[in-house]
Lab assay of single mutants.
Amino acid sequence: LIVDEAINEDNSVVSLSQPKMDELQLFRGDTVLLKGKKRREAVCIVLSDDTCSDEKIRMNRVVRNNLRVRLGDVISIQPCP
C-alpha cells in the first residue's frame, strides 16, 4: 500500500478504504502489523476512511518515522495473529 498523510493525529491509528479492508478481511479496530523499510515494523489499529483511495494507507508522521518511510513509499500490511 502507498503511504499517505493522515487526517487525524492519533499515533496508533492507520486508515484504509472500506473496499481494501474488505479485501484484506480486516474490521474496524483490528490490530495490524505494518512493515516498512530496513525491517522496521509497527503495530497499529486500522480504521475505515471513505476519503482514502483503495491503494493508499493513511498514517501520521510518528508512525511514518517509526517505519522509516515517507509519503508515497510502499509498505506491506498484515493482520496481527
Rank of each mutant, 00 (worst) to 15 (best):
Q78W: 11
K38P: 13
M21K: 01
D4T: 11
R40I: 10
D49T: 12
M59A: 04
F27I: 10
S48V: 12
N11L: 12
P79G: 08
I7Y: 04
L71M: 12
Q25H: 06
N11K: 08
E41F: 02
R61I: 11
P19M: 13
L33D: 02
R28W: 06
V14K: 01
K35N: 13
D30A: 12
V13Q: 07
R40G: 15
R39W: 08
E5F: 13
L33T: 10
P19I: 15
Q18Y: 04
D30L: 02
G36H: 09
N8F: 08
R70D: 08
V74I: 07
E9L: 08
T31N: 11
R58I: 08
L26P: 01
R70I: 04
M21C: 03
K37E: 10
R61G: 11
L71T: 15
D54T: 15
G72M: 03
I45H: 08
F27Y: 07
V13T: 12
R68N: 07
S76D: 11
V63K: 03
N66F: 04
K20R: 11
T51G: 11
R68W: 05
G36L: 01
D54P: 07
R64C: 05
D54H: 09
L67T: 02
L26S: 01
A42E: 07
I77M: 08
L24R: 02
P79Q: 15
K37W: 05
P79D: 03
K20A: 12
M59P: 00
R58A: 06
D50V: 07
V13G: 09
I45R: 14
S76A: 10
P81N: 15
T31R: 14
N65H: 10
V3N: 00
N65I: 03
R68I: 02
I45V: 13
K38R: 11
T51C: 09
L26C: 03
D73E: 07
N11R: 10
D4P: 00
C80G: 14
I77H: 01
T51R: 08
V46M: 03
V46L: 05
M21E: 02
L34C: 15
L24G: 01
R39E: 14
D22F: 07
S76P: 02
S48P: 14
V3L: 02
N60S: 15
L47V: 11
S53Y: 13
I7T: 08
D10V: 06
A6H: 12
A42Q: 12
D30F: 02
D10C: 06
E5H: 05
K35S: 13
N66V: 07
T31L: 06
Q25G: 10
G29S: 07
D10A: 09
I2L: 07
S48L: 13
S48I: 13
A42R: 13
R40L: 10
N8R: 08
L34I: 15
N65K: 10
V14A: 03
V62K: 12
D50E: 11
V32P: 00
I2E: 06
L47T: 07
K37C: 05
L33F: 03
S76N: 05
C44Q: 15
P19Q: 15
N65Y: 06
F27K: 11
D22T: 10
N60W: 00
R40T: 15
R61P: 12
S15M: 09
E5G: 10
S53Q: 13
A6T: 14
V46A: 13
S17D: 00
V14E: 00
N11G: 09
C52D: 03
S12K: 10
S17M: 00
A6K: 06
A42S: 15
I2M: 07
Q18P: 08
Q18R: 10
Q18D: 04
T31Y: 06
S17Q: 02
D10Y: 08
R61A: 14
Q18L: 09
R70K: 09
L33H: 10
L71Q: 10
N60Q: 04
Q18C: 08
P79Y: 05
S48T: 12
R61E: 09
V3P: 00
I7C: 11
D10I: 07
G72W: 03
R39P: 08
R70N: 07
D30Y: 01
D73T: 04
N8K: 12
R58P: 00
R68H: 12
G72T: 10
V43G: 04
L67N: 01
I2W: 04
V63R: 03
E9R: 06
D30K: 04
P19R: 14
Q18G: 10
E41W: 03
L16Q: 02
V43K: 12
L47F: 14
V62M: 13
R68A: 13
S15R: 12
L71P: 08
I57S: 01
S48Y: 06
G36V: 05
D49K: 02
L26D: 01
I2H: 04
S12L: 11
T51H: 02
R68E: 14
K35E: 07
G36D: 04
K56V: 11
Q18I: 08
S15G: 14
E5D: 12
P81R: 05
D54A: 08
I75C: 04
S17P: 03
K38E: 08
K35V: 07
D10L: 07
S17G: 06
N66Y: 05
G36W: 02
V62T: 14
D50R: 09
E55W: 06
G72D: 05
D22C: 08
Q18F: 05
P79I: 05
K35L: 09
D50G: 13
N65C: 07
V43Q: 15
R58H: 04
I7H: 06
D30N: 05
K37T: 09
L47G: 13
I77Q: 00
Q78I: 11
E55A: 11
D73M: 03
L47W: 09
N8A: 09
E5P: 06
V69Y: 01
I57Q: 01
F27N: 11
R28F: 03
N11W: 04
V32C: 13
D54M: 12
E9Q: 06
E55M: 06
K37F: 07
A42C: 15
D54Q: 04
Q25I: 10
R58D: 00
D54S: 09
D4F: 03
S17R: 03
L26T: 02
D73N: 07
A6C: 09
V13H: 14
R39I: 08
I45S: 11
S12T: 15
C52R: 05
C80S: 15
T31F: 05
K56G: 13
L26A: 03
D73L: 00
I57G: 00
T51D: 13
V46E: 02
V43P: 04
S12N: 08
I45C: 13
T51V: 06
M21P: 00
E5M: 14
F27Q: 08
A42N: 06
E5Q: 07
V14M: 01
D49Y: 01
V63T: 15
Q25M: 07
V14F: 00
Q78H: 11
M59F: 03
L26R: 00
C80I: 14
D73V: 00
